[in-house]
Simulated scan of single mutants.
Amino acid sequence: MKALRPPLPWHTARQLAPLVALFAALCTALPAQAVRIKEVAAVQGVRSNQLTGYGLVVGLDGTGDQTTQMPFTTQAMSNYLQQMGISLSDANASRLQLKNVATVIITAQLPAFAQPGQFIDISVSSMGNAKSLKGGTLIATPLRGADGEIYALAQGNMVVSGAGAAAGGSKVQINHLSAGRIPQGAQVERAVPTPLNDGSSITLGLNASDFQTARRVAQAINARLGPNQAIALDGRTVQVQAPSSPGARVNFIAELEELAIETTAPAAKVVINARTGSVVLNQAVTLGACAVAHGNLAITISSTPVISQPNPLSRGETVVREKADIQITQEPGNLIQVPSSPQLTDVVRALNALGVTPQDLLAILQAIKAAGALNAELEVI
């Protein structure tokens, strides 16, 4: 048997006591995790713009729109042929069978500072009843902004990640076949002016509204550049004095974004996805002591066909009717006491003890919030 170590002499323990106290003080005084300003804020006015367009995808293997149900496909193809110098009469245009053509909507994001000649990615989605866009080619389509002006021109071969096959009434499909992407599929034709060099200052917009973060951003900038160089206007915006020269302003913003600030504890929030039943809690969520009773109500409806046979020589008809049997089962709800939970792990353990489904948990969390025992904000998405 291993001998036990003798206790430390009292004078040795007395000498170690200040070291232990100093170590504990250092542990509690450790700085919070630091992030860069570029990770919590962005320069206002530097933003992307949404582009959209209406076009045609050709070269499909008989999986295009059914023109009898989608007349705008025939009209769009007739307009395109007319631009190419081919004129069709109304009678001939109405007889077009365009099984290899599909009408699509193109969407794209024009990034900030994009210049004419640069390429951007685009997404293509079917707007008709095309079965698949796989193997199709998008013909030249102008992309317009919210002001109606053309900012890019899209064209190229589509990339569709889905696959499918059908035969004898059976169908197998993997992923989505009516939408795809074209990498570098649009060329920028017009630049959007950015008010980056306007005025004597720039404004930083925080990603989330928080007065503490806004104050710390302003303090970090003033500590680096000098007093009164940055002012927190509210919980979302910080105004910073900047040089007027374009080159100097770019260097100034680049250095500004690299400044580090300490992160603040997030506000307690519970996010509920009502469609999928998902519940997400952050680390600041706490529970007060409460009691929860929850029972399940099940309604079962079974239908049994009943055949009514007429008497012989009565000239009646055999009638099939349905006999419905309805049963209602309600399980007893046990009263469960939920203790006070100051940490996220305790909250999760307390909620798991209820043993309910995620859909039931949505209603329970809302009820706990209404009772004042949930110290968090509920957000339903």
Rank of each mutant, 00 (worst) to 15 (best):
S308H: 15
S302G: 12
K323T: 07
L365A: 00
L281V: 05
Q327G: 07
V306Y: 11
P310D: 11
A298T: 12
E317Y: 14
Q343K: 13
A350F: 01
N311R: 12
L365D: 05
V270I: 07
R349Y: 08
L361D: 01
S340K: 15
A265M: 10
I301D: 14
I299S: 14
P342I: 01
R275G: 09
D325V: 12
P305L: 11
R315Y: 15
L259W: 04
R321F: 09
L287Y: 01
G288A: 03
Q283F: 01
V292E: 02
S308K: 10
N282F: 03
G333P: 03
P305K: 03
F252Q: 00
P358R: 04
Q366M: 10
Q309I: 14
E255C: 13
V347A: 04
T286Q: 15
S340C: 08
T357Q: 09
L378Y: 03
A298V: 14
T300W: 10
V348Y: 07
I253Q: 00
L354C: 03
L374I: 02
G355Q: 15
E257H: 07
T263S: 13
A373G: 07
E262C: 02
A260G: 08
P342G: 02
N352D: 13
V270L: 02
G295W: 06
L259I: 11
A268N: 04
G277P: 04
P342D: 03
A324M: 11
V338T: 09
P312N: 10
I307E: 12
S308A: 14
K269C: 05
V270F: 03
N375S: 14
S308G: 09
R249F: 06
L344P: 01
N375A: 09
L297G: 07
E322D: 08
K323I: 06
G316I: 00
R315T: 10
T357S: 14
R349E: 13
L374S: 00
G277H: 03
A373W: 00
A373C: 04
P266H: 10
A353N: 14
Q330K: 15
Q359M: 13
L362W: 08
A289I: 06
G277D: 01
Q343M: 08
G372R: 02
I307A: 09
L362S: 06
L281I: 11
L259Q: 06
I364G: 00
P339V: 02
A370F: 09
L351C: 02
V338L: 11
I253P: 04
A363T: 15
K323W: 05
L365G: 05
P266D: 06
A363C: 06
V292L: 09
E377T: 15
S308Q: 12
A265I: 13
T345G: 10
P310I: 05
A267E: 15
T318W: 04
S340F: 09
L259M: 12
A274L: 08
K369M: 06
H294E: 11
A373K: 06
N352T: 09
T286G: 08
E255Q: 14
V347N: 00
C290S: 15
Q337S: 11
